[in-house]
Computed example of a mutant assay.
Amino acid sequence: MATTEIRFSGSGGQGLLLSARIMAAALAGAGRTVAQSNAYEPVSRGGLSRSDLVVSDGEADYPLARRLDYLLILDDAAARASDGLLGAHSLVLVDAERVTTVPEGPFRALRLPFTETARNLGNPRVTNIVALGALTALSGLCPPEPLLASILAMTPAKLERLNQNAFAAGLTMAVAEVA
């Protein structure tokens, strides 16, 4: 049974664990089995942080990531932390502003303006939602609608419009990258 492994990585305070929970909820709602694991340094902001999803159509044979299909890096703190889990099949998405050390290898790596886009929308704190939109479009793991529903269900109502715009901007960014 095929599994898909996804890692959200960066530094504490970037909403990585929330992004992973949002995607896990959307995938579980679509009938997929999802195992999530988190790791972070014992500082509230700035330390290495990551959340992994192992996704399967049946039971996942192992709940921890061993070979990443998708890697999202939002901060230089995580730039080299996943090198041993990447292969030719991997897609690596990095924030063009906050990641200066882009992993190199036989995989595809894209530098995308996640932070810049979030700032242009009025709040850099939605960088994770912009990145989630791009990951959604590029991975094809789940249609955008269930992910947007998860975003709206798991974030404050007062940020609904901002999160909708951030997710849409990420989707658009990815479509432009593929074209």
Rank of each mutant, 00 (worst) to 15 (best):
T4P: 04
R7W: 00
S11H: 01
G12D: 07
G12E: 04
G13C: 11
G15H: 00
L18I: 12
A20Q: 03
R21E: 09
R21P: 04
A25Y: 08
A26V: 11
L27M: 15
L27A: 14
T33V: 00
Q36K: 01
S37E: 06
N38C: 07
A39V: 11
Y40S: 03
E41S: 12
E41F: 15
V43I: 15
V43G: 13
R45N: 05
R45T: 11
G46M: 04
G46V: 05
G46H: 10
G46Q: 09
L48T: 06
S49K: 03
S49G: 07
D52N: 10
D52E: 14
D52L: 05
V55C: 13
S56R: 01
S56V: 08
S56L: 08
S56N: 04
D57Q: 03
G58K: 02
G58V: 02
G58Y: 08
A60R: 01
D61N: 07
D61T: 07
Y62W: 15
A65G: 05
A65K: 02
A65W: 01
R67A: 12
L68D: 03
D69C: 11
L71R: 04
L71C: 06
L71T: 11
L71F: 12
L72Y: 00
D76S: 02
A77T: 15
A79Q: 01
R80Q: 10
R80F: 04
G84V: 07
L86N: 01
G87N: 04
G87A: 12
H89R: 05
H89V: 00
L91A: 05
V92G: 06
L93C: 08
L93A: 05
L93V: 13
V94T: 10
R98S: 05
V99L: 01
V99F: 02
V99P: 02
V99T: 00
T101M: 13
T101F: 12
G105Q: 00
P106H: 11
F107N: 00
A109N: 06
R111E: 08
L112R: 03
L112Q: 04
A118T: 09
N120G: 11
L121R: 03
R125F: 14
N128K: 08
I129L: 09
I129E: 01
I129G: 07
V130S: 04
V130N: 03
L132V: 00
G133E: 05
G133V: 14
A134L: 14
L135A: 06
L135Y: 01
T136G: 02
T136R: 04
L138Y: 11
L138R: 10
L141H: 07
P143Q: 02
P144I: 13
A149M: 05
A149N: 03
A149D: 06
S150E: 07
S150V: 03
I151T: 13
L152C: 07
T155M: 01
P156G: 02
L159A: 09
L159K: 10
E160G: 04
N163M: 10
Q164K: 10
N165D: 14
A166P: 15
G170E: 05
L171I: 15
L171R: 15
M173T: 13
V175W: 12
A176K: 06
E177H: 13
